[in-house]
Design a protein around this nucleic acid. Sequence first.
DNA 1: AGTCGTGCAGCAAGCGCTTTCTACACAGCG
DNA 2: CGCTGTGTAGAAAGCGCTTGCTGCACGACT
Lengths: 348, 348
Amino acid sequence: MTVTLADVAARAQVSPATVSRVLNGNYPVAATTRERVLKAVDELDYVLNGPASALAAATSDLVGILVNDIADPFFGIMAGAIQSEIGGPGGRAGGERLAVVCNTGGSPERELTYLTLLQRQRAAAVVLTGGAMEDAAHQAAVAAKLRRLSEAGTRVVLCGRPPAPETGAVALTFDNRGGGRELTEHLLGLGHRRLGYIAGPRERTTTRHRLEGHRAALVAHGIEEDPRWTVHGRYDRQSGYEATLELLRRDPSLTAVVAANDSVALGACAALRDSGLRIPDDVSVAGFDDLPFSIDAVPALTTVRLPLAEAGARAGRVAMGREEAPAGGIATVRGELMVRGSSGGPRG
Amino acid sequence: MTVTLADVAARAQVSPATVSRVLNGNYPVAATTRERVLKAVDELDYVLNGPASALAAATSDLVGILVNDIADPFFGIMAGAIQSEIGGPGGRAGGERLAVVCNTGGSPERELTYLTLLQRQRAAAVVLTGGAMEDAAHQAAVAAKLRRLSEAGTRVVLCGRPPAPETGAVALTFDNRGGGRELTEHLLGLGHRRLGYIAGPRERTTTRHRLEGHRAALVAHGIEEDPRWTVHGRYDRQSGYEATLELLRRDPSLTAVVAANDSVALGACAALRDSGLRIPDDVSVAGFDDLPFSIDAVPALTTVRLPLAEAGARAGRVAMGREEAPAGGIATVRGELMVRGSSGGPRG
DNA sequence: AGTCGTGCAGCAAGCGCTTTCTACACAGCG
DNA sequence: CGCTGTGTAGAAAGCGCTTGCTGCACGACT
């Protein structure tokens, strides 16, 4: 039924070994022979059997990219950049690799299962993107898996995720703490003293780091934080909307709202507008990430730009062994404060 | 070095065959034996060798999802929905499948190469999303590949993509033409008579269909279209910005701008604002797709909602054989007009 | 002219798993 | 007490490919 190497070999009047060598191009084959083989491949419409090949060669051309939410451009942009460096078809790299992105949906179990699946496929590399869960048991489980993957020769890279010590994984970590701090300092510099903070889900490293940066800025300015000023939510627009209403209810005198990310900030803007408040005249708003749509908000969003594409590209190259890993296996990627129209001095 | 089935068998004091059967659970194994095997698996930290398994069983648990641009939520949302139905880890489905999304970047070659790669892996199913290239040669090549895939037992589903006759592929097609027509009719109903249109890239089916719908509406209302009113661009924000300036330059008397999609519409809004025009007082704007951020534009975007998640979910189920394919292998998915603040009656 | 590279091609042994077919108990039956 | 049926485990033959090693020409040496 399906065409095999042997069929091609028979048609080209050579041994299967020769066909294999022509296809892999890692062994001298006479030009005329090669031609003959290629012709046969073409005529027979032969397609290599991936599993068989992977089994025999004990290697695979699969590269896995794990993302928390594929519908979120934050991950989409990174994944795209990673993938373009992985080579994938048409990429810079020579060998054709199947770069595949796996959507964990933020679920720890899924993350683990995908890791196992990739381990099963003997993936050439795995890139994990975005914040990690802070659950200790889960982190240990992931660390164990990563270690096992590394040991098996799979290159493991973390992109926008905190380092995983002793796992052999290379980490390109976003400086969420520093970015959060810088952002809040900007607001403080404008004169704001009562700032609401809409944090992401509790058990995420990203959430914690950004919040820590925010608080560090407050502390540095001698501002005592009111516990009512922090609300936790999800990383999406609706959550930002609801959280903002909640913040407003708790303390209507807030003059600024700092959001966990840009989507949340957009929701916050909508909530403020619906509450009859002007931005930034009545309340300033700040986001995080600087996703493409942030500049289109009205007013444009003040936020922290994360070099998603650059970091992803670098992660991709490291995963392919095309770029050296940073010293110590850890690099910190800094964000850049983008001051735009959504932040201004407090009213009065 | 790596643990194999045989190792597990030895430790559990059974034959490799038994271990395999325990793992696959498709053959009666005594409870006590099963326990023993499972214990050994656990102790040895055994992970099945995917390629070997796929080779022996002549099947694979890989499902491919092709998208044009992974950074675009349009595709992200569909991919996420598809993937959640595919089962993936933690999904509804029993068997664990590796649902992988492949980013073609809109390149025909990449699309073809990914298809070959998936064919190589003997993928269980393949879902192609989004518009297709209109290049005849490429379409023929893709059709040939799809046919071959179907014949080899891979289920092929097109989601938001026009049907591919004679390939055995099931198609869930978006009614881009109808949506485009409805949208423009809405604008005409408001009294607009001079409408600019920012189309997507020329060689895409989606582009053509939406434009055809737009023109059909114009024709139905007896409006003769000025060739200056149409500009082609890419499906992104910047393109929308530039195209709008161009439209304005060509004919400053336009009272409405219809965009190829929401991102383009956002760019159009920015360009209009930067040109000192108010929306919708001076110029109305309409998008397409109704991505999550569209409602946050100021004013909120009038657009056509495409049930991306629903269509994706359905495509996923069909790909898994969990839902029957529509009659004739083709279903048309309609959009829904969402009238919001960005459209209003023309000035004057 | 004899000998030794050198360049290419083939042989055959797996890679780690699945699955058919066979084998063996043991229980139930006449 | 022998026979068949049922439930469970094992032996072994591949799945389609890669690759170390062997083998054979042929030209280039001495």
